[in-house]
Amino acid sequence: MIDTRVKSPILAFFIRYIFFFITIFAVYIFLKGHNAPGGGFIAGIIFAISLVILNMALSADEMKQILHYDPLQIATTGLFIAYGTAIAPVFFGYPFMLHKMIHLHVPLLGNLHVGTPVLLDFGVFLVVVGVTTKMTFTFSHSSDSDINTLAQDESGLSNTNEEPVVAPTNEQATTE
């Protein structure tokens, strides 16, 4: 159903613009999360889905240019932010994970309570983006031997002892 080798130029054209709007939407969802349905997780997965769709349209190199970082690194950064938010209060003599709030008035978005919970939520956002894209990219590429080297380079979690998983050669991967 999804043939990763077909890269449609029309789809690519549209998706670039759609991608832009989705990103804005994701940021909105993320920021409103504390007071309305939304939050880091939902924003993250929306953003990740847009990246996944983008991936269908673009070639691996283009995709790499857009992403710039290995998704796993993004996810790890998210983890660090979340852990950091949790650990920070300890140094001020507070219990682990205590959150502090700052109240801000931002035009367009209205009353914002910016505080450490946002940082944790941002960590969640990054993790979800990184994890979802990493999972789908690696899995969709895994039957394709030449793209697999990319996956290998990206992850960095491999060495000479690893050999990419390749589908049995005699049976062509076919769509249903």
Binding site: I87, V90, F96
Partner: peptide, 25 residues
């Protein structure tokens, strides 16, 4: 001092993630 009891959990998590960045054995 009470924060110490989270150490056996958070420190491995933190180090695990650090080792994801510091990848080469």
């Amino acid at each position: 001092m009470t924060n110490w009891i989270v150490l056996p959990t958070i420190l491995p998590l933190l180090l695990g993630s650090i080792l994801l960045v510091w990848r080469t054995p």
